[in-house]
């Protein structure tokens, strides 16, 4: 201890104090301040950039989900449209079918009516012709029968015979 006190040099202490003081002042002013400021600025820049990247990622995710939502909506709309179109088509087909059926039925009906009336007309004609024909036949027969006396008598007798039998 005694030796240490003996070794202590006030001059050296004095110079050390002055040099250290000046060094601290100079270093703070010209080195540490700009260095710390740049480091802090850089770190803030980095953290800001990271934050921005994070935000961008989040935005992207949002955008993606938005897109998906839009896509889903579009898809749903398309499905709906297709469905509607199909319904319309089916309805149209059904409508057309029923109309056709109705029309066909009406046509068949009218055709049937026509056929019926034609048939009736034809029958009536046929009846007329048949009656006239039978009259003519009867006429000609009568004419032929009546021209022969013997035949006439025979006929009358036969007719009488039939009548007697009756």
């Amino acid at each position: 201890m005694e030796k240490l006190i003996n070794d202590f040099s006030f001059g050296l202490f004095f110079w050390q104090a002055i040099i250290l003081l000046i060094l601290i002042v100079l270093m703070v002013k010209f080195a540490w301040k700009p260095i710390m400021n740049s480091i802090v600025a850089r770190e803030e820049g980095i953290s800001n950039a990271l934050l921005a990247a994070e935000n961008a990622k989040k935005d992207m995710l949002n955008l993606k989900s938005d897109n998906e939502k839009l896509l889903a909506e579009a898809r749903a709309e398309r499905d709906l449209m297709i469905k509607e179109a199909r319904e319309i088509k089916e309805k149209m087909i059904a409508d057309a079918k029923s109309e056709a059926q109705v029309q066909g039925a009406a046509m068949i009906e009218s055709a049937k009516a026509t056929i019926e009336s034609e048939k009736n007309a034809a029958m009536a004609e046929l009846k007329n012709q048949v009656s006239s024909l039978s009259l003519e036949i009867a006429e000609t027969l009568l004419k032929g029968e009546l021209s022969n006396k013997e035949a006439q008598t025979k006929l009358v007798e036969k007719m009488l015979g039939d009548a007697k039998l009756n």
């Binding site: 240490l4 070794d7 202590f8 040099s9 006030f10 050296l12 202490f13 050390q16 104090a17 250290l20």
Partner: peptide
């Protein structure tokens, strides 16, 4: 050197 370290410690 003891003078130097004394100065540093005093600071």
């Amino acid at each position: 050197n003891i003078a130097v370290t004394i100065c540093l410690a005093l600071f």
